[in-house]
Computed example of a mutant assay.
Amino acid sequence: MGIRFSLAEIKLATNDFDDALVIGKGGFGKVYKGIIDFGGSIEVAIKRLYIKSNQGVAKFQAEIETISKFRHSHIVSLLGYCEEEMILVYEYMPNGSLEDHLHKKRANDSKSSALTWVQRVNICIGATRGLDYLHTGTGVQSRVIHRDVKSSNVLLDDNLAAKISDFGLSRTSPAYQLGTTDVYTDQIKGTFGYMDAEYFSTRRVTRKSDVYAFGGTACSKEFKYHEPANSC
């Protein structure tokens, strides 16, 4: 399940949660870039979930229980956690998220420049390989439905290889249930615009729901490649 870090170690890694080190934020908390002693000093991404969030508790537990089992080149690695607060420590993705590049959220960062067509195709291939690993149960005891596939949850390493992240809303089904990943849910969770109509009407989420969500990302106008205006 990864290394259990103390709160003191996390504070040291983030300069006591310095806002200057924030690299992402959402409804559940903030993500900091930090440096931690992990058999040597390495850069990490530290997600600090809001203490008062009831959903944050479930998200924290779900991420530890789910992602700690994964070993795949297109799934982000969980390195450890801290139980004194709800904190998760991940490998650091230097090129941010796919969303950063598509929407140019890192306009002052040269690494958020427009992606080439080849890079976009390779990102699609990598992300779908990660999803296939989740859906087929390869190497783990359960099949996993992500339930929140979108560009902000596709992270990019230093070679722009795609890695699926953020498993706080994921659901699992036993790997021995061949031919199905269907899971019935009491509440509909996810991001509007990425959820399929069948999920809304039946409350039954399947791997097709993840495929639909990623298809929405890949077919969006932001993802389509346009030649630079000054190209020949």
Rank of each mutant, 00 (worst) to 15 (best):
G80M: 09
G27L: 01
A20C: 01
K47L: 07
I145R: 12
S152K: 04
V211S: 13
S41P: 05
A127R: 04
C232H: 08
M1T: 11
I23G: 09
M195P: 01
Q119I: 00
T128S: 15
I125Y: 09
E63C: 03
L12C: 08
S231Y: 13
T202I: 06
L98F: 07
K52P: 00
K69V: 04
A213V: 02
S165M: 10
S113V: 09
G80E: 03
I188Y: 10
R203L: 13
A114G: 08
T206F: 07
K208L: 11
W117P: 00
T138M: 09
G96K: 06
H74P: 00
G2I: 02
G168T: 12
M93F: 07
G168E: 08
T128R: 02
I46Q: 02
N108F: 10
G96W: 05
K163Q: 11
A229H: 14
H74T: 01
Q177A: 10
I164A: 06
E91A: 08
A13M: 06
L115I: 04
D182G: 02
G193I: 06
S73N: 11
Y194V: 03
N108M: 09
K221I: 11
D132Q: 14
G190I: 08
V211L: 10
P94A: 05
A13V: 13
L131I: 07
Q61T: 06
D196K: 02
K189A: 14
G193S: 08
S173H: 07
I164Y: 12
A162K: 02
V154H: 01
D157N: 15
S231N: 11
G139R: 13
Q55D: 11
Y32K: 03
V31I: 14
F38R: 04
G139Q: 11
E85V: 11
G130D: 03
E43G: 00
S68K: 04
D18F: 07
I188P: 02
R129C: 08
K111N: 14
D182P: 02
T136E: 07
K25M: 11
H146E: 08
R147E: 01
S97H: 03
V57H: 14
S112A: 15
F17P: 08
G168D: 06
T191I: 05
Y32V: 08
S113G: 10
V144W: 13
S68G: 09
K221L: 10
R203Y: 13
S142V: 14
T138Q: 13
A58R: 15
G215W: 05
S6L: 06
M195V: 15
C219M: 15
L134R: 07
N122I: 05
S41E: 14
D109E: 14
N230K: 10
S68F: 04
K33C: 02
G2H: 04
V57T: 13
V205P: 03
H135C: 08
V118K: 15
L79G: 00
A175D: 05
S201N: 14
L178H: 15
V31A: 04
S77Q: 14
F214Q: 01
R204H: 06
R171H: 11
V57R: 15
A175W: 01
G27A: 13
K52C: 07
F38G: 00
V121S: 04
L178E: 15
N95L: 06
Y194I: 03
Q119V: 00
R204Q: 08
E85G: 05
